[in-house]
Amino acid sequence: MSSLFDNIKPLTIGQERLINVLKDDSNEVVGVFGPTGTGKSFITVIYGISAVLGGKFKRLIIARPLIDITSGRLESPEELGDLYYRVAGQYLYDIMGDMVPRDDMEKMLRDGKVIVTDVNYLRGRTFDESLILLDDAQHAPPENAAEVLMRMGRNARLIIAGDPILQRPLGIEKDGATLMREVLLNEERAMVVDLGLKDIVRPGAKRGLKLMFELRLRKRSLSDEERKLVDTIRVHAPDADVVTVASFRDIKESLEIKSENAPDALIVAKEGYLGRVVGKGGERIKAIENDSGFRLIRTVEMSLDFRQWIRTMHPVGWITKHIVDVDFAGPELQVMLRKEMGAFVGPRGVYIRLLDRAFKRLLNIGVRAIEEGQPSESK
């Protein structure tokens, strides 16, 4: 193989694992999932270009959905004509930067050694001596990836990359990336690599991710009692910037949670404004509780420190000292514990279910827990 891929230096542990998985030829299918900015497309495309230049594969086929960001509609080459291929090709140039001279890249495209196309290209064909990258899989019908698995021929390899966390289409519980990840976890000669917040390396990506989460929270539809809580906050903390509020009383009732430390509601404040919600000595939050009818209200700043979110919402206050790490694994937040799994999960699993339902209500993200040293879902 060309030295192009060998020159890639991983910047995180997750990226190092992805590079090692790609170098292992026994992994016929590789799935890599995580938020934007973690290097999914960059690393996999560089691998593909290197593999073609080095003669390992005759061609690299990059299939990715092209989405109209205004309407959310999936565009096709038939509808856009040459514009589709110009936009799709620019994606490749943006990724490669100066890694490969533009003239060389254009020649590979002209010669058919690199093909950038839509996901429907994968249907009804047999792929020999080809590397197929299905990128932005969260926007692709899972059937497309499943079909290409059946049509992989001699010396063929499939890579599926996607963001099942933030970029998945709204209103869909299981997008293409999430479903394909679930399938690949138990597929022979397949490997899944999950990248998380700690793997974000692109400048500005973390800030952008935080803003996207904040926008998602601000757009939430509030229930009547949540709107009443917002009105009460405006009375007692008029200078506070509140991102959203969430009531958990219905969740607690359905789970039959009796703990007095389980919050009835959560207030998410803009970073830097938490003190204005709580007030000096906590007088503001106490007044909000008294006037709103919520017995226990917890508060948290809008940040990507989800360890603090867990600490704020979990009924057992001391449990956070046993939390080793909180990060994304596929479409969920994965909480790794040093010990005290029972205390974290709670009697009959009610605490973990409270967290899971609360995060789904807030961010459409689930929560799972594993013990330190226990293998993650990803293989």
Rank of each mutant, 00 (worst) to 15 (best):
T38A: 07
G39F: 02
G39P: 10
G39L: 03
G39S: 09
G39C: 09
S41Q: 08
S41A: 08
F42E: 14
F42Q: 10
F42W: 11
I43E: 08
I43L: 06
V45L: 12
V45F: 11
I46Q: 08
I46Y: 09
I46E: 05
G48D: 11
G48I: 02
G48N: 12
S50N: 13
S50C: 11
A51E: 07
A51T: 09
A51N: 02
A51K: 02
V52S: 09
L53G: 07
L53R: 15
L53E: 14
L53T: 08
G54Q: 07
G55W: 04
G55Y: 02
G55C: 04
G55H: 04
K56T: 14
K56G: 10
K56C: 10
K56E: 15
F57G: 08
F57T: 04
F57H: 09
F57Q: 01
F57N: 05
F57L: 04
K58L: 14
R59H: 01
L60N: 10
L60E: 02
L60P: 06
L60M: 00
I61N: 00
I61H: 00
I61M: 02
I61L: 07
I62L: 12
I62T: 03
A63P: 00
A63T: 01
A63H: 12
A63G: 10
R64Y: 06
L66P: 05
L66Y: 13
L66E: 02
I67M: 07
D68L: 03
D68F: 13
D68Y: 11
D68V: 00
D68I: 01
I69F: 09
T70C: 02
T70N: 15
S71P: 11
S71E: 05
S71M: 11
S71G: 07
R73M: 15
R73P: 09
R73E: 15
L74P: 14
L74Q: 14
E75V: 08
E75T: 07
E75G: 03
E75K: 15
